[in-house]
Nucleic acid binder design. Sequence first.
DNA 1: CGAATAACAGAACGAACATTCCAAATAAAA
DNA 2: TTTTATTTGGAATGTTCGTTCTGTTATTCG
Lengths: 219, 219
Amino acid sequence: MRQYLEWLFQEVNFVEVRFSTSTFYLMPRVKSFDEEEVLTKAMNLFWKQGYSATSIQDLVTHLGINRASLYDTYGDKEQLFKKSFELYRRKSIEGISHLLNSHSNVKDGFYELYNKAINEALLDNDRKGCFAVNNTTELVPNDNNCLEILTSNRNAFENLFFEYLKKGQKKGQIKKSKDLKSLASLLFTIYNGMLVVSKINRNKKELNDSVKLALSLIE
Amino acid sequence: MRQYLEWLFQEVNFVEVRFSTSTFYLMPRVKSFDEEEVLTKAMNLFWKQGYSATSIQDLVTHLGINRASLYDTYGDKEQLFKKSFELYRRKSIEGISHLLNSHSNVKDGFYELYNKAINEALLDNDRKGCFAVNNTTELVPNDNNCLEILTSNRNAFENLFFEYLKKGQKKGQIKKSKDLKSLASLLFTIYNGMLVVSKINRNKKELNDSVKLALSLIE
DNA sequence: CGAATAACAGAACGAACATTCCAAATAAAA
DNA sequence: TTTTATTTGGAATGTTCGTTCTGTTATTCG
């Protein structure tokens, strides 16, 4: 009976079981930390230091939870890292999709995109750069799973850019002769370049001038 | 006398000393490995795996020299890494300077530059990317000395690009109204972006189309 | 209270880490 | 041969790594 209840609890994550004769309550102690909040902290640490340079001890110190809780909740280092990166990817693609689509003019949209990237880079005293770019340079090709994730990441971005450009082209904001596939690809390349260069070049005006020049590609 | 000779040997690296009365020969065993050749191997390993992920044992295995010889010749891990990166930087800037200046037409020059980068990226089964870009994302800002080196690296590139563009502008290949500082900066940003993206996108045609589109900035 | 279990602190594990040291082998020229 | 110094294999050192385990405390509800 006891074993059956344990199995049942694992399977359905129930809180209360009523039988015809009596009622069993199995109410364990609730989680005292927010899983996503702690995951965000892990994300920021991996983002800043990279996968290899971040030790479990670093994580234990910065996450504020116990070593055992870390392993119980997120699995080993690699799993925690992957979960961190997934969180980043989700937030990242959501934010950029929203940003672009809140500008009906394509050039405005990309201006805001690049500008936001620059502003965030310059405001970040940790100079973390972009988590996806960092992972590309650190982990490809030594980690095949990461390569897959980054490949689908690139596809997601280029498709997003492409569809956005296409909408603009239909509205007459871009010449019909433009090859939007190549343009989307180049804009993604420039985006990546900005995220690298802004770790070195902290001059806002210079970065901004580059952006303005890059936008001349869209017309 | 003995001490003086040792000092003199260190200072001038001499082989033979003749005095009025007699001749002293101090000819130790010569180095059996080529310092730069081994340093090149170290460079390739750091380049592929990054600083943190490369252990001394990895280096001992791949360099083909003894652990003690490694420390005696290059110092500790950090010094060996810095020397590796210096070698890369020197070769890199020399090669690119030569490549650009062997094309009198600016657009041709940049086309060859980007094309060479893409070809080398696609031919490299290790997908090492660019050592400088990799170091930027891995080590900035956690290593201040590396930041300095990368800052001067960026200046060297942007100046090289700028001077090359200026020469072309004088020859009438670029409109007088073009802001060459921003253009040089953007071309460097695109170069960085290409070196990141080519780790993920292995489609030569797509990369090439992006390059051609990017070159439309120069006119 | 008792039962259940999350979260904890911290010890323990073996492996890998960077680095140093030592004795033996090697090479060059007197 | 002897002298000098490089290079070597490999042991040794002490630290840090990722991971697991043990025992304690805290919290939930009947």
